[in-house]
Simulated scan of single mutants.
Amino acid sequence: MNIILTQINGIPIRRNFVENLPYNPHLKKLLSGKRQAGILSEVLFWTQVRAKTFHNIDFDRQRIIGNYIVDFYVKTLGLIIEIDGSSHDEKEVYDGIRQTYLESLNLKIFRITDFDVKNNLALVMKELEAFIIENYRC
């Protein structure tokens, strides 16, 4: 049975809650530092999605999953949003291992670039809508 979470452009979106995700409590002390760092692209994206302002979908910022901290997480979809900036340069192997692990938990990952968030946020939000429709439509 599909439980409808929301609608995007009139298309029903099904809930896809992934239960019992692993959590490393030792990473918790890193969260406040990451949030206080105020990375511009993350702040810009957060202003678009906080407080259920994006199609009434609840986003978490800086969520611990296993041994990783993801930029944004939508519990009700099992969806991770990653903003890739210069910190991801030269880290293709690490990012690949991380992505494989997160996908093994039945999570989906939507990647956007720091540049796109800063320079074309409206397009980023349209691409996120399209990704959600493609992966979670009823």
Rank of each mutant, 00 (worst) to 15 (best):
K28P: 01
K29M: 14
L31F: 03
L31S: 04
G33A: 11
G33V: 01
K34D: 10
K34H: 14
Q36L: 13
A37T: 06
A37G: 11
A37Q: 09
A37C: 01
A37D: 10
G38E: 05
G38T: 11
I39G: 01
L40E: 14
S41R: 00
E42A: 06
E42T: 12
V43P: 01
V43L: 11
L44P: 08
L44I: 15
F45D: 03
F45K: 01
F45E: 02
W46H: 09
W46N: 09
W46Q: 10
T47A: 06
Q48R: 15
V49I: 07
V49P: 06
R50F: 06
A51T: 05
K52S: 06
T53Y: 00
F54L: 00
F54Y: 07
F54C: 01
H55C: 00
H55M: 00
N56S: 11
N56M: 02
I57L: 08
F59Y: 09
D60H: 12
R61E: 08
Q62Y: 06
I64F: 03
I65C: 06
I65Y: 04
I69N: 10
D71W: 10
F72S: 07
F72E: 07
V74P: 13
L77M: 09
L79G: 15
I80Y: 00
I80G: 14
I80A: 11
I81C: 06
I81V: 15
E82S: 05
I83N: 04
I83Q: 04
D84G: 00
H88V: 10
D89K: 13
D89G: 02
D89Y: 10
E90I: 10
K91R: 09
K91N: 00
K91L: 07
E92R: 11
V93S: 15
Y94F: 14
Y94Q: 14
Y94D: 13
G96E: 10
R98L: 05
R98G: 05
R98C: 01
T100A: 15
Y101M: 03
Y101T: 01
Y101D: 07
L102P: 15
E103D: 02
E103I: 04
E103A: 02
S104P: 14
L105D: 04
L105A: 05
N106L: 12
K108T: 06
K108F: 12
I109N: 12
F110T: 06
R111W: 08
R111A: 02
D114S: 13
F115M: 07
D116Q: 11
V117P: 06
K118I: 13
K118Y: 04
K118F: 05
N119H: 15
N119I: 01
N120G: 14
L121Q: 07
A122G: 00
A122Y: 02
M125E: 04
M125K: 02
K126A: 09
K126F: 01
E127R: 14
E129D: 11
E129G: 08
E129H: 03
E129F: 06
A130E: 15
F131C: 07
F131G: 14
